[in-house]
Nucleic acid binder design. Structure first.
Lengths: 140, 140
DNA sequence: CGGGATCCTTACGGATACTG
DNA sequence: CAGTATCCGTAAGGATCCCG
């Protein structure tokens, strides 16, 4: 399980002063009062930010993939945006690009060890979204 | 270890055709090839999207909070952006705004049941970010 | 095949000043 | 106190055409 999201008997917050909620903010890097790049939350957000990012990651979770295959699986994604997205992921060290020599050129993108660490996050996103939808009034 | 991200014997993907990875994409709503608002992942992303969103949510996780308290806890967040962020959260049904009559006016923002469902997601973000940082080469 | 180079448009975050 | 009203600069997403 991704997260026995057991808030079970976690923390009650008797007062209302935010006395370091250890479950929510385990260590000092998260006790920031503004968006700082070093905060783990920001690192994770950067990874999944940008339109199409989670979809590209989802595809790569299945294994290495070429540029063209990604385009084929995500038809409404334009080449420019895909290039952008992959570039960011590579810059963040989450994906590596292998250029296979020959002609026509073939490339292969695959997740790094760091990138694979995002799998539970994708699942958590799906999970949280599902629960939110379920908890929401019939509609709007 | 935080998460033996148990792909244990989950799915091996013998070929490379993405045959519905049940762990990653449990049901049809996630088997989309483009960003659709109905997808649970998009719902979750919408909730945490926008600068400061996760920080505002973190504060509200501690319990109800007034506009001014939020500003005090997030000093570099301007009133306009806070208003924007809260407005989006309210529109998504994740937060409710209580206006206490009297003067000066007092308001109180608190999470709805749906909003509380986001707690595990915030933890997952922290977690994933931490693991990514740990898996990343010393630096670059 | 796998992009790079442009151009365009809108959305977003932020600053500042003012109001019920 | 709790916002609203403007204005602004930037950057993100997308469309189109071209190149090695």
């Amino acid at each position: 399980m991704v997260g026995t999201h057991g808030t079970s008997e976690a923390k009650r917050l008797v007062g209302h002063q935010a006395e370091t909620d250890v479950e929510l903010v385990p260590d000092a890097r998260g006790r920031t009062n503004r968006p700082e790049p070093g905060c783990p939350v920001e690192v994770a957000l950067a990874a999944i930010s940008g339109r199409w990012a989670t979809l590209v990651l989802r595809e790569l979770m299945h294994g290495p993939c070429s540029f063209g295959e990604l385009r084929a699986r995500l038809p409404s994604l334009t080449a420019k945006v895909l290039t952008d997205r992959l570039g960011e992921l590579v810059a963040q060290g989450l994906v590596v690009k292998d250029r296979l020599p020959g002609f026509p050129v073939r490339t292969s993108y695959r997740l790094t060890a760091a990138g694979m660490e995002l799998r539970p996050l994708l699942i958590a996103l799906y999970d949280a979204g599902s629960r939110v939808l379920a908890a929401l009034p019939p509609h709007d």
